[in-house]
Write a protein that binds this DNA or RNA. Structure first.
Lengths: 169, 169
DNA sequence: CTAAACTTTCAGAATAAAGTGAAACAAATT
DNA sequence: AATTTGTTTCACTTTATTCTGAAAGTTTAG
């Protein structure tokens, strides 16, 4: 396998992975491209490499910057803006985890908290009992997950990996 | 907040969560509905409750059964089929983790393995070096994640929570 | 200040995903 | 074996998401 085949594979698969993670395909591909690029790339570079429009590249870069995994960079004596990906895999993972925690876990915890301990004479005993039992169990699980994620996000990789080694033995 | 408001909230929020996890909204809502239902429900029950078509309910139930989190159930002296959700939150979480590991992590590991150690005289030294460094780092991380997930999937909840307590202290 | 070079935005077009409903299929009952 | 009851499929419609490209906005240099 030569370099351009490998590059193509990487970008494509990253796109597929992104899709199943709710990140759109093009965004994920741009991220994949930046990740393996030795130099920061300009909007033009990305347009050309992935054959997508200026508007799309611009929007996607903005979104990747919102995720905190792509950064603007200026080169000396160049007006143009360049973009580079976070390359530390640990930092990438924690950034993504942090964002997902914020966007997905917190709203669920908020909802589950709101519906704790329903009492309603109009509903059957079974219905009330079931929703209370489930929402309590789910909330407990969500809170545990939240704590683990917070710990994960703030930890450094060496701590985490040494813990993992113990955990998975 | 009364019972039907809570039920509505739960189903809606579960739908939103599903979407951002790549599970379609309706599927997630059906799962949410089954999760808080004290009795297994029939296709008709679900159609009526969520105002969706027979075809859609049927397809969605099939997919949820593929995930392993919804099961068919027969009631005595009833020809009709009923469906119920797995209600053990721990089992739910491990099933989902298992499926995602299989659908998402394994293909990425496969790809990263294939592109290890690219050599190509036509590409620049920097390009080759960068893709090799990144793919190696990503593969290491993916393999670690795979191990953790396997451990997680096969563990029982009591082991996991006692480990967590230590981990997050 | 004006022009040139570059960047961003956004309305509408294109594409993809989800949902419908009627027809085909299957099973059980008489 | 015919009818009734229930289930599944799939071509088509609807809805949602993504992408384009031209216009507006910025910045820098002369």
């Amino acid at each position: 396998m030569n370099y351009s085949e490998a590059k193509y594979e990487m970008i494509q698969q990253w796109g597929v992975l992104g899709s199943s993670w709710g990140i759109n395909k093009t965004e994920a591909q741009i991220h994949g491209l930046l990740m393996i690029s030795p130099e920061p790339l300009s909007v033009e570079d990305i347009m050309e490499e992935l054959k997508i429009s200026r508007g799309n590249v611009s929007m996607s870069l903005r979104s990747l910057m919102d995720w905190g995994i792509v950064h603007k960079r200026f080169k000396l004596n160049e007006r143009k803006e360049f973009f580079e990906s976070e390359k530390d895999v640990w930092k990438l993972a924690t950034k993504v985890a942090q964002e997902r925690q914020k966007r997905e876990l917190l709203p669920v915890i908020e909802m589950l908290t709101r519906i704790q301990n329903i009492k309603d004479p109009k509903a059957t005993k079974e219905e009330v009992s079931e929703i209370n039992t489930m929402s309590k169990a789910l909330l407990k699980f969500a809170n545990q997950s939240d704590k683990v994620l917070s710990k994960f996000s703030n930890a450094d990789s060496s701590w985490f990996f040494s813990t993992l080694v113990k955990l998975i033995k």
